[in-house]
Design a protein around this nucleic acid. Structure first.
Lengths: 207, 207
DNA sequence: GTCTATACAGTGATAGAC
DNA sequence: GTCTATCACTGTATAGAC
């Protein structure tokens, strides 16, 4: 491919810049300059700057969540319909995002975390749409796997789980190590996945 | 008191507006209008818009963390220097922020969560300074209480813990309940504290 | 010191010509 | 689809009044 179309060039440039400096830290003038496109093209193709990041989020998280749903479906089929152990469900939940987002130059997760706490109503709508099916399926499976928890309790703890993951992905490299005075060291995705599974499985199983 | 000084009126107005619509969602023109102050007074008293929110963060989190440190010190003294149970340490860690930030009209935590993922280097510096002593003290205490974990593992899991809390405080009322199709209902701080303690204590104890 | 009015460069958005 | 010109708005800086 020589030069992709304008829309795609904008997406590529935006992902790079947003990942580095956040949504508010980048102007559409910079994006269109890097993408070698006209200033107005962002508004033409995406409606607004917010619409641009909505497209990015939808693309990234859509395929990520599809992968998680596929893995869960496959595991469920392999078990012949038996209840899956919590550890296996959580591994399927954590592994895809951790391996996608942890590593050198993978600056998108920090942006994602910020988006998760966004105020923009349209973006919240996108997040709900992209995460809705995933939440339904995983909550159902977890409900079977940890039947001793009443729904309200399970929901609260799944919320903790999500928070733990987002936080670890977003700033595992910064805050936590700075607090402990450790050298900034590359995170090991396998270690991180394992710790998330162990920590959250124990938390879900308790009481 | 009739009319507090300009600096204080700006802080009050800023906290209200930032809490509602986030840092980027509010202009200093709105803030100074609500505070009945001149546009330039923000820059005069705080140097910049970022400096204003830095002051807010420092004030809120400084007193919050002091409360947590006091409680821990007192518990430690009462135990005669014996190792504290994880559950007690975690209760001291979670209870103050949950009870401060959960409830009607308490919109500050969402802002805090967003700040936690901020890009602003100066703000990161403030967070490190405000949280540094707290992290030192609690990590030491947890290390004694859960000696079977090697430091790297403990650090990772404490990071999960913090993420769980932030996420629960920031959007317990929005995302999680929307996913589950529940009615938005007022969170019960006692319930939330208890669930955080149970979930995280089990997660820290495991393996 | 404290506050005010005002100017300035940069932002996202948009209408209309091509 | 693309481009230019322009708009309303933003945070910031500063000169000068009290």
């Amino acid at each position: 491919m020589g030069t992709p179309d304008t829309r795609q060039r904008i997406l590529t440039a935006a992902e790079e810049l947003f990942g580095q400096r956040g949504f508010q830290g980048v102007s559409i003038r910079e994006i269109t300059h890097l993408a070698d496109a006209n200033l107005a093209s962002v508004n033409y193709h995406f409606g607004s700057k917010a619409g641009l990041i909505r497209s990015l989020v939808e693309h990234h998280l859509g395929s990520l969540n599809q992968e998680r749903l596929d893995l869960l479906e496959q595991a469920s089929a392999n078990s012949g319909g038996a209840t899956l152990p919590v550890e296996q469900i959580l591994d399927i939940f954590f592994r895809p995002p951790v391996f996608r987002f942890v590593g050198p130059g993978r600056t998108f997760p920090g942006l994602l975390a910020r988006l998760h706490n966004s105020c923009d109503p349209e973006l919240i709508e996108v997040m709900l749409r992209v995460f809705g099916p995933l939440a339904d399926r995983f909550l159902t499976e977890l409900c079977r796997s940890v039947p001793h928890l009443e729904p309200r309790t399970l929901l609260a703890r799944v919320n903790f789980m999500v928070g733990a993951m987002i936080h670890a992905l977003a700033e595992g490299e910064t805050m936590a190590q700075a607090f402990a005075g450790l050298e900034p060291r590359q995170q090991d995705p396998e270690f991180l996945t394992r710790q998330l599974v162990l920590f959250c499985a124990a938390g879900l199983r308790h009481e």
